[in-house]
Write a protein that binds this DNA or RNA. Structure first.
Lengths: 217, 217, 217, 217
DNA sequence: GATGAATGAGCATTCATTCAT
DNA sequence: TATGAATGAATGCTCATTCAT
């Protein structure tokens, strides 16, 4: 299987390292697809960026679509991996919820390519996800943690009891996601740079605050 | 309908009516661009859908980009027009806020093409908005109403006083927007159709509830 | 028939003066065709330059080709007209010959559009001339004058007697024509501006001198 | 043949031989551009004539303009190559001059495509030559030989001493060039075929005779 | 006589993809 | 494994020309 993360040094000295070449191609693909969308992306450009012959794209991934799918799997795999490393077990529900909201914000802040690829995938009616066994099996630990945290908070009386986890997830994700996905148009329309570090920090505080307040009983 | 290009005489069968032809082209363009993005959209298809010769696109709009810009201006003009017709003056702050949140949800529910065009425009770093005098001048009445409603509510003690209108706007928009913009990927990932009428109704209730709760003092 | 020379003021006050409009179109056509050749010329540009509706081109001249033919007839008519006004009767053969050479040089110097149109017509294997009754009937007075002058000079012993008029005509025309037709490439290749007034004056002297010397018995 | 692009191995059947393919394309381009001018030339036709895919034109030459430039460089390279092989060292000035004039005539007689391309390049104000380092560096041996021959002849008293080489070059070239460049219009206007072998032979004699006579002291 | 609207065929150029080595 | 050569099917755009008023 194609590894989603580039291997800096493979075990063997191999000049021709298939896995490494694939990883480089995937990174180049993520960059190109997120920048220009599937239709706007150029296979030539991906090969050029990766520093390999264009034919290798077809050799390893069969088609532009095939590479796109792997790129999409790769970005999903990465966020799932990061989500796994959230350790909230020892925390109070309020603090745990705060961390979940913060993670959601911070991950999107750090991964614009994830947003861009999701955007394209949605225009495509999630066709690649639906067709990918890998992606359908890739269960989100985040939603489980959120559900557990929510239930704990409800049990302890710090959260309202009439909110279901999926709706909460979408709201938490949404207040961060929209800020990033539409950052440029919002900045342009409101004539105010929402891309600055200050705007980011201010938004981060608001997001955590807003979500936790909405959960108060 | 809120067409940005007025038809001189709607009584005639619309042959050889430049304004009408342009309006038809713009509608076809909105459809095609929202379906496939700028890069994926086909000028041929737009002309075919509009039922006119392809050259007219270039005659009236100079280029694919030119048509795209006008299409974008058109969808923005339409939402601004709708926003203007919100009349909240007579309402209590809570009710007014509820209507603003509902409007935000309902408009996006009814206008997937708006979301799709915004998505593309953001990938493009809002370049068209920044270059369009028309769009930069198109001030949003929504944010003003939101600001006024927020202040009233704060004054009457029904809303918290530590939230600024722009952050609130982004949060309100975000909890609805993300649900729609990412409806397909969310449905696929969570294995649950979020596009059904039931899911929509349920989400609508959550959104209003969530936002108003977050505003409680 | 279309008049090749623009009428500044027609006899009637007529706002809509067909002949005048045609003349303006022809001038615009000569300019555009000489600048860009037949294939490179744009009917739109001709109409724009003439300040009239494009459809008038088709109304008056049927097609781009039709306009081109009239433009070609126009430039030929003009040089023939000028040739007619050469009055050499009273001159000595040497002086007459000198004037003929000078005329050839001066006319080409003043009429780059003539050279440009001839160039295009030759690429086209003179097809328009061959198809135009007007052009085939347009006899050149120049060649007759040259023939007469040559014969007089031979009779008086100032010119060689083994040169026929047509060859002489081509040589006289050639030494001027090539300088103008290829002025840009010659300047570029030899790194020396042959378009300056000084270069022109120097060339003019050479041309007359060269031709007359070649005719010495 | 003086092909500007060397074929690595002429033994192979020339499939998948980049240099050979380029050379074939250049020859096809020279033919098409000389026949129809830059604006009238069709990239499709060039590819068809060359028997290769149209995209290769863009692969190797970037654009129609790029191919045109290379074609122009090619025809200039070829005449310069031929000029180099003129060996006049052992000849008397009169005989050497005669050969120079004859070469000028014969080369143009054999290379109508050179004339056609020059014609187009002049309409373009020599823009390609001016932009091509290759072409600007391509010094003409002909003008040097002409200069040397002229000086020798003057020294020996067989040529006049008041003619400069560049003017002489233009005159020599002109009396041949004009005959060929305007052969069709001259034939049409004078109602006499100047394209026949007989007319060519007669003109050749005249040209040499005319030039040498003009140089007599 | 004059104009703006509209068209069909064509054209330079692009791009994903396959072939041959 | 990896590469350069080559291709077919678009794709945005142009242009001469015709239609309707």
């Amino acid at each position: 299987m194609a590894s989603p993360v580039p291997r800096k040094s493979s075990s063997s000295p191999a000049r021709r390292d298939a896995a490494a070449t694939q990883a480089i191609l995937i990174q180049a693909a993520i960059s190109e697809f997120s920048r220009n969308g599937f239709a706007g992306a150029r296979v030539d450009e991906i090969a050029r960026t990766a520093g390999v012959n264009k034919q290798l794209v077809y050799h390893y991934f069969n088609s532009k679509q095939g590479l796109y799918l792997v790129a999409l799997e790769s970005v999903y795999a990465e966020i799932r991996e990061k989500e796994k490393h959230l350790s909230l077990e020892a925390l109070e529900p309020l603090e745990a919820m705060s961390q979940l909201v913060a993670f959601s914000f911070d991950y999107l802040a750090a991964h614009p390519e994830f947003i861009a690829l999701l955007s394209d995938e949605n225009r495509n009616r999630a066709s690649h996800i639906l067709e990918s066994r890998v992606l359908r099996k890739m269960h989100s630990p985040f939603i489980d943690m959120l559900d557990a945290t929510l239930k704990q908070g409800v049990a302890r009386g710090v959260f309202r009891d009439d909110i279901d986890a999926l709706n909460l997830y979408i709201s938490i994700a949404g207040i961060s996601y929209f800020f990033f996905s539409n950052n440029h148009t919002l900045s342009a329309i409101f004539g105010k740079s929402l891309g600055s570090r200050a705007a980011l920090a201010q938004r981060r505080r608001h997001v955590i605050d807003f979500a936790l307040n909405a959960l108060r009983p």
